[in-house]
Nucleic acid binder design. Sequence first.
DNA 1: TCTGGGGTCCTAGGACCC
DNA 2: TCTGGGGTCCTAGGACCC
Length: 427
Amino acid sequence: MLSTPSDEAMAAETLALVDCNSFFASCERVFQPRLKNRPVIVLSNNDGCVVARTDEAKALGIPMGVAFFKVRDLVKKNGVHVFSSNFALYGDFSARVMKTLSGFTPELEIYSIDEAFLSLKGFESRSLTDYARSIREAVMQNVGIPVSIGLAPTKVLAKVANQVAKKKNGGVFDLSSQKTQDEVLNYFPVEDIWGVGRQSTEKLHRLGIRTAKQLRDAEPCFIQKILTVVGRRILDELKGTPCIRLEQESRNKKQMICSRSFGKPIYELSELKEAVACYVTRVAERLRGEKSVCNALQVFIQTNRFKEDAYFNITTLHFITGTSATPRLITAAHEGLERIYRSGYAYKKAGVILLDFTLENQKQLSLFDSEQQEADEKRMKIVDQINRKMGQDTVKMAACGTERAGPRSESRSPCYTTRWGDLLCVG
DNA sequence: TCTGGGGTCCTAGGACCC
DNA sequence: TCTGGGGTCCTAGGACCC
């Protein structure tokens, strides 16, 4: 069923999509102003692939998401500045950006670490373009991060507007009028629309639909048949009919994942068990932070997915009573690992997923092991307290092992804003 | 030699029930 | 020849996003 929001709730209003330009790279530049106008890239975990590029790096032909080893020569030849990712730093910058934005509207949806939708309802009396410019200036002034802002009546159109703003118009573009929509959508490639991925693009191209305008003006029922209700919604949004509402409340999570690729391949079950115990520890901390317990856990392992004889397996374990106690979760994860482990493979990655959440204070207690459960919970609270105060893994389960090989991250910047020892010294 | 991590939503198909 | 059928719940897998 296609959800059709009530007219009242979705009356025509202007949305602004604020998106930080080359976010991670821009964060790094704040501390190294000499990198302004220079190519900068930021790498993923393990220095595996490129996850952020400045315009200068894009211009050199470094694609998003490319494996770093594939562009290493290009990077060297052009003096591209390379950073390993530093998520503590980016998270802190993100919070500062969002705080600034929240001063401009009471209705704000934080969509991702570097993007937010703002409702500008009630601000129409002045030019919204001017208002957007003042938002841009405030973020630059307060946080030092450049942003682009797209204005439009729906989220999909605001995304389009934002992409136009990134390329021209001084970082702000208003796509509210029908005339501008006709002009822009006419040249806007269908594959650049938010929600249209590789598979959908292929289907649309086969049908001769190459521009956003062609998709907007296609027969809605036909598009729904081809691209499901998801495609139908995109079409409606392109027409200016809002179908994807602003979500101000952060929704309760449905799953939590902790997974990592290994620096070197792992062969032994015992080593996998250690790694997985660490992932369980991380994700269980987060679960307790949300005051929830989980009723199921999944564990997976995989070999190099780019090789032909790759092996991947995942298994699910259910709990009779919800839990967030690390030892119980580790036991379950290890049981799962034993089920799916096959000897002789070179494992490259493993992960743990927690699912099926209940609030801690609403969980069912089992008649038989409630005492044990209570003891577990008390113990975990103490462990969390100590680790919060003294640093991650001050107290941890023996199952995690003692070696801390850690991921490869050769070019990590200091945690300037979140670790006292890394504060920048002036003078 | 080297290829991220954390999420969401939708659909199809199987199990089960009456 | 032909063997109920409709509803609900759950899960796996696909597609997409940042």
